[in-house]
Design a protein around this nucleic acid. Structure first.
Lengths: 198, 198
DNA sequence: CAGCATCCGTAACTTACATTACGGATATGT
DNA sequence: ACATATCCGTAATGTAAGTTACGGATGCTG
């Protein structure tokens, strides 16, 4: 099988895995279920991903790479820092509370080995954090914000932007926020953030 | 069996359930495992709790009742509102990020029926919310805070107090916060909160 | 084109677990 | 004290799932 063709096939399998995961949760997702959804065989899944954990690790890693590249694209612009935050905030909130992210967080919560959680966090929050640090440092250099500890400032921004939305999504008590909600909450977060650190 | 004796026995079984749940996660927790830890029989568990879901519902409900009574005790004092918040905040944060709460949130995340999440939220956040509303209304009456929407104010307070600590606890990337940390974060939350709404 | 690798669909194997059942021991109520 | 209910420890039952295996179809490479 061609490398390119295999890559496409792999993504189809991963997409099928998400469909089963989002419909049935981690506990209700079996390798055979994914294989059937993807019209693939168990043997192929095990050959390509190693085992169930390996397949989920691949899902987490790919999802995180996509989130990161989305956000990095914003950072390459010449816009001023607060404008970047205005664009980045709703996108980040949307991604973190989207159905895929929620499904992956649920998988991590159910994974008693802690490995999915580690991958999710390293590739997620821990990857986004330095990006946000760069934005906030830019804002400070532009004289828009005033803080000593960049990490503290990023943490505060995330508290105001995301708060406890994720856990409420994960336990099933918060519907997916609308685009409108994400914009409004981001604007609110920026407003409060500037009030506190401006 | 005496009502009183049965109640004690039931709590012993629930304590054993927590031990298994915290050690092995929801997916790794079997009824037989709990029965063995509690030195009870499967038959007794099924007679008393109905099924696995029923047992976990009981865990959630009892934990929430305890959290609530903890917090209500603070509310019965004659202290001024901000003092109450100074006491309530660290306690609430400690309870919400404690090992039991985390284990229950994980169970809810793994429960594809959504029932545990519903119980957890109704008996948790949704029970705590009105308590906090009362505190903040008292603070407004005392002239300490200024806001229009009580619910919005409570949400902001929770964002500042808890933020994304819970989800990070649940996916295993945040150790349990120390008492000292809870006090400091609560104090920080109150400070920012007053800065924004004072 | 032929030989080999790999994929699909399906089955097999092993293990685990939710739930029910059972014999004997213990507790309860009269 | 006796009869009955209930609990414990263990086994049985039925189902599901992780993983491997297999025959035939398809794809790839020389």
């Amino acid at each position: 099988m061609r490398e390119e063709k295999r890559s496409i096939r792999q993504q189809q399998i991963e997409a099928a895995a998400y469909e089963v995961l989002e419909a049935k949760g981690y506990g209700g997702t079996s390798m055979l279920g994914i294989a059937k959804q993807a019209r693939a065989s168990n043997e192929t899944l095990y050959n390509w991903f190693g085992d169930k954990q390996g397949l989920f690790q691949a899902l987490v890693a790919r999802n995180a790479a996509e989130v990161k590249s989305h956000l990095e694209a914003e950072l390459e612009t010449d816009h001023d820092a607060m404008s970047i935050l205005d664009t980045l905030g709703p996108k980040l909130l949307d991604l973190l509370t989207g159905d895929r992210a929620v499904a992956l967080n649920r998988a991590a919560a159910a994974d008693s080995s802690g490995e999915l959680g580690a991958t999710l966090s390293k590739a997620g929050r821990e990857a986004v954090f330095p990006l946000l640090e760069r934005v906030l440092l830019r804002a400070r250099n532009e004289g828009q914000l005033n803080f000593d500890e960049t990490g503290e400032a990023v943490g505060l921004y995330l508290d105001l932007l995301i708060g406890d939305l994720q856990i409420r999504r994960v336990i099933g008590r918060q519907p997916r926020p609308s685009r409108k909600f994400c914009k409004e909450r981001s604007a609110r977060a920026v407003r409060y953030f500037r009030q506190l650190l401006g």
